[in-house]
């Protein structure tokens, strides 16, 4: 197995080459997947857990992967599903601290954390859409991953960015 331009090529010497392909994917995608999970849950430890689960699935399913989609799209799809699986953990809720922050001036919070907090206030689907958009995933791929139309994704991204811009304007004032 080798990866070239996001395409996985299978070779007969599968066991060690699968390990090599996985090592490569793990190195390339860990940060991206972690950020996507952070965008969804806004909690470092929780995001790390979801990212780990995602790579466990990638490892388990890599030999069954068919190049119907780019490998990156496939990994993001698994990550999105793992994020949405958190809906079943009803005892744990996403940290939406920005609601508190809006009541008064934000202190000791840098802009990076503020962005992640703002994203945490969005609904589940919008959190995933904007996380993938900021991760430079093509809008057509986001639509494919979520099972939505491309025009819908485009409209939503526009609305989300408007909301974020407004929040940042208020934050900077």
């Amino acid at each position: 197995m080798t990866i070239q331009n996001g395409i996985l090529t299978k070779s007969p010497n599968s066991s060690s080459s699968q390990q090599r392909a996985f090592d490569e994917l793990y190195a390339d995608y860990w940060d991206k997947v972690f950020r996507l999970c952070m965008g969804y849950v806004n909690d470092d430890d929780w995001a790390k857990d979801i990212a780990q689960d995602t790579f466990i699935t990638v490892w388990q399913q890599l030999s069954n992967f068919r190049n119907e989609a780019a490998i990156g799209t496939w990994i993001f799809r698994i990550a999105c599903n793992n994020c949405l699986r958190q809906l079943e953990r009803s005892s744990k809720f996403v940290r939406k601290e920005v609601d508190k922050a809006e009541e008064g001036p934000v202190v000791n919070e840098d802009e990076v954390n503020f962005l992640y907090q703002c994203i945490a206030t969005l609904n589940e689907t919008d959190r995933l859409i904007i996380s993938m958009e900021l991760e430079d995933v093509k809008q057509a791929e986001i639509a494919g991953i979520l099972g939505m139309s491309e025009s819908n994704v485009r409209v939503r991204i526009h609305r989300i960015k408007e909301k974020l811009t407004e929040k940042f304007k208020a934050y900077e004032r």
Partner: peptide, 24 residues
């Protein structure tokens, strides 16, 4: 704003990737 959001997004300090052996 777009570039700013993207730059901020990528500036997030990510958790170190766990050792592959530990993951498996």
């Amino acid at each position: 704003a777009d570039d700013k959001f993207q730059q901020l997004w990528r500036s997030k300090k990510t958790a170190p990737a766990p050792d592959i052996k530990a993951l498996l």
